[in-house]
Computed example of a mutant assay.
Amino acid sequence: MPLSFRQVDVFSSEPLRGNPVAVVHDADGLTDEQMAAFARWTNLSETTFLLSPATDEADYRLRIFTPGGELPFAGHPTLGSAHAWLEAGGRPRGEELVQECGVGPVRVQRGERLAFAAPPLLRSGPVVDADLERIARALRIDRSDVVDSQWADNGAGWVAVLLRDADTVLALSPDFGAFDGLDIGVVGLHPDGGEVRAEVRGFAPDAGIPEDPVTGSLNAALAQWLIGNGTLPPTFVTAQGTALGRAGRVHVDTDGDGTIWIGGATVTTIAGSVSL
Rank of each mutant, 00 (worst) to 15 (best):
A198V: 14
T254G: 12
P205D: 04
A136W: 01
N154E: 08
G230R: 05
L182A: 07
A247F: 14
S144Q: 14
A207H: 12
A166D: 01
I184M: 00
A130H: 13
S173M: 11
S149Y: 04
D131H: 08
R143I: 01
T168P: 02
A198R: 08
A204Y: 11
F179Y: 11
N219E: 12
G157A: 07
A138M: 00
H251W: 14
S173A: 15
G241I: 12
L222P: 09
V187Y: 05
V128Y: 05
G185T: 06
N154Y: 03
Q150A: 11
V196T: 15
D206E: 15
A239P: 00
A198I: 09
D129R: 15
T238W: 02
A198Q: 09
A178Q: 13
R164M: 10
V186C: 02
A160K: 06
A152K: 05
G181E: 05
E199R: 04
V186W: 00
A138N: 04
L244H: 02
I227D: 02
V146N: 02
D167K: 14
V147T: 08
I141G: 01
D145L: 09
W151S: 05
D206T: 14
P174D: 01
P174T: 03
D212A: 06
R197Y: 06
V250Y: 07
P174S: 05
R201S: 04
D206V: 06
A160Y: 07
T168Y: 06
I141W: 01
S217H: 13
D145I: 01
A223T: 09
F176L: 14
Q150K: 06
A130P: 03
V128A: 15
V159W: 08
W151I: 08
V146Y: 04
G208Q: 03
A138P: 01
D212K: 06
V127E: 05
D175M: 08
E195R: 15
S217P: 10
V169M: 13
A247W: 10
F236R: 10
L189K: 14
T242A: 13
G248Q: 09
P126I: 11
V237H: 10
